[in-house]
Amino acid sequence: MNPSRDEFVQGSPSARRAFYADVRDEDLIVLVQEGQKKAYDELVARYKGRLFAFILRMVKDPTLAEELTQETLIRVYIHAAKYREIAKFSTWVFTIATNLVRNKMRQRSRRPYTLSLNPAPDEDEMPVDPADTRADTTAQVERAELGELINEATARIPEKYRIPFLLREVDQLSYEEIQQVTGLKLGTVRSRINRARNRFRQLIKPMLRNETLLAELEQIEMRAVREKELGQDDNQDDN
């Protein structure tokens, strides 16, 4: 589907979303190539959350993650003309994001670091403890705090396993798409996701046996379902 400019609806973001609801990402980027800024806004609305979630769990720093998400989306706009439909749009976007993240992490690793005189145990070997101050599950665990714990756990997965793992778990990319983004073989993608899951399980194991936390998780899920239903109702009202 390729809506013309005459069909284009000027209006609120929800009206725009409704107008573009059935338009594929690959068609939207073609519209961006033709100069339709609203099509780009729709792509931003579709991808900003997924990109931010992926990048934040890679770099663990919210400010940096926001910057890299913006940088990714800016590159999508500036280099829109270079996109060809030989791959899915999502693959192209996540390839850009993955390259930016890798470059940033490489820059970080090159920075000189200081050594502490009081050597701490290797953090990677320590499971995330929900009983510490950052994860006080006896009190009301906020969604953000729980998210921070998950971010911390994912950040401890070695980078080569983490990228395919997050592309699969956070962004729901297929194995073939992950293969295209990372340039790995299909079997390697599968085994790395499996290893990352195993590692992630070890890191969050204390949380998995925590009844309060599991109850909170159920509440969060129920709230999310309710918000989704409300959002759908709003869209129907706009129409």
Binding site: G49, F52, A53, L56, R57, P62, A65, R143, L146, G147, I150, N151, T154, E169, V170, I204, M207, L217, I220, E221, A224
Partner: peptide, 8 residues
Amino acid sequence: RLIAATEP
């Protein structure tokens, strides 16, 4: 489920 529920 935890990852999905804690999307930043």
